[in-house]
Amino acid sequence: MINGEKKVENPIRWAMVGGGRGSQIGYIHRSAALRDHNFQLVAGTFDIDPERGKDFGMNLHVAPERCYPDYKTMFEEEAKREDGIQAVSVATPNGTHYEICKAALNAGLHVVCEKPLCFTTEEAKELEALAKKKNRVVGITYGYSGHQMIEQARQMIAKGDLGEIRIVNMQFAHGFHCEAVEADNPSTKWRVDPKVAGPSYVLGDVGTHPLFLSEIMLPNMKITKLLCTRQSFVKSRAPLEDNAYTIMEYDNGAIGTVWSSCVNAGSMHGQKIRVIGSKASIEWWDEQPNQLRYEIQGKPAQILERGMDYLYPEALADDRIGGGHPEGLFEAWSNLYTRFAMAMEAADCGETLKDIWYPGIEAGVEGVRWVENCVRSADNGAVWVEYQ
């Protein structure tokens, strides 16, 4: 059980790029990082408007002289301090991730980055090589993977409870953008602009989330080929898609599907993953994250609850409060930030932690790679392509 006791000897001196006033995601980064005393927010460049960013940072109790006008200045000035930052979180629009991550790694900083890591596999591989050269940790915020029942699912599959895995059905299909809301919403507008968002909209924005859940649950299954079809039902979003279907074949003979959408009218999140084996199936839905549905052929369906003694010990290790009390996305993110901190401290000591997992640079590379393959398939007429 996690109870707030320190996991690292000293809190990691931490900064943010982006995540300021009006950010959709900045607050959860700060809440997750600071919750278990593993990080200390000491600096930031929180806004593209320096004065607005400084005002916001001061309201977070960051010293005014450490609220910087841009990330380049911050990295340069913090490097001069004995108490300078050790890590930075990047919570900016997609088109800036590659540049900022590269600069942070070259400055010797650990990085936590929003996905996608960048736009191309070539860029992602470059960042991966740089992180390894500098011995720096790069964490990717696939926040849903920090839920306790995802670890339970991972353990059940590994221990053979489902039998041979045959089918993986995934979806993240919400309905909040079933109309052209970006016309009046700046935080959505950039997501449908290829210059800022990259080569896809919903494939990268939501589809990669359940994909990473499958990678955590099924680490030994690899995609060999896929077929993707994508649509722009709100025509002004073209060439970026607001709906896509992807079919995948795996190296063990299993098949998988991902439905990525923001036009599923009436749906809140609609993120689900169902793993089907030869003996049983499991299903997790992020709107009911404390439960895992377990269905054994020929027996009544079971609903497994977080925090209960019948779960595997690896899942209970992520517990923050006893069974019956709901945990949510903030707890899931906190679990990941705790792992990021432990990995960063180990790297600073020249060590590598082998007994924990987290969405690292490899997950960032794989997300970019999957989107790139999906776009290649869709833009060539929804054809099967070898997974490259």
Rank of each mutant, 00 (worst) to 15 (best):
residue 4 G to I: 07
residue 14 W to D: 01
residue 15 A to C: 06
residue 22 G to H: 04
residue 26 G to A: 07
residue 26 G to Q: 04
residue 29 H to Q: 07
residue 32 A to L: 04
residue 37 H to D: 14
residue 44 G to D: 00
residue 49 D to E: 08
residue 54 K to I: 03
residue 58 M to D: 04
residue 59 N to W: 03
residue 60 L to H: 01
residue 63 A to G: 05
residue 68 Y to K: 01
residue 70 D to L: 00
residue 77 E to V: 01
residue 80 K to C: 05
residue 82 E to D: 15
residue 82 E to Q: 14
residue 86 Q to A: 06
residue 86 Q to V: 03
residue 96 T to Q: 15
residue 98 Y to D: 10
residue 100 I to C: 00
residue 115 K to R: 05
residue 122 E to D: 12
residue 123 E to W: 09
residue 128 E to S: 10
residue 129 A to D: 12
residue 134 K to Y: 06
residue 135 N to R: 14
residue 143 G to W: 10
residue 151 E to D: 06
residue 157 I to M: 12
residue 159 K to N: 13
residue 184 D to T: 13
residue 184 D to E: 13
residue 189 K to E: 06
residue 198 G to K: 03
residue 199 P to V: 07
residue 213 L to M: 15
residue 218 L to V: 10
residue 228 C to T: 15
residue 230 R to P: 01
residue 242 D to G: 00
residue 244 A to R: 00
residue 255 I to M: 11
residue 256 G to H: 02
residue 262 C to M: 11
residue 263 V to G: 11
residue 269 H to I: 12
residue 282 I to S: 03
residue 291 Q to K: 07
residue 294 Y to G: 06
residue 296 I to P: 02
residue 305 E to D: 10
residue 309 D to I: 04
residue 315 A to Q: 00
residue 326 P to R: 09
residue 329 L to N: 04
residue 331 E to G: 05
residue 334 S to W: 05
residue 337 Y to I: 03
residue 338 T to M: 13
residue 351 E to K: 14
residue 361 I to G: 03
residue 366 E to N: 13
residue 368 V to F: 11
residue 369 R to E: 12
residue 371 V to T: 09
residue 375 V to Q: 08
residue 378 A to E: 02
residue 381 G to H: 09
residue 381 G to E: 07
residue 384 W to D: 08
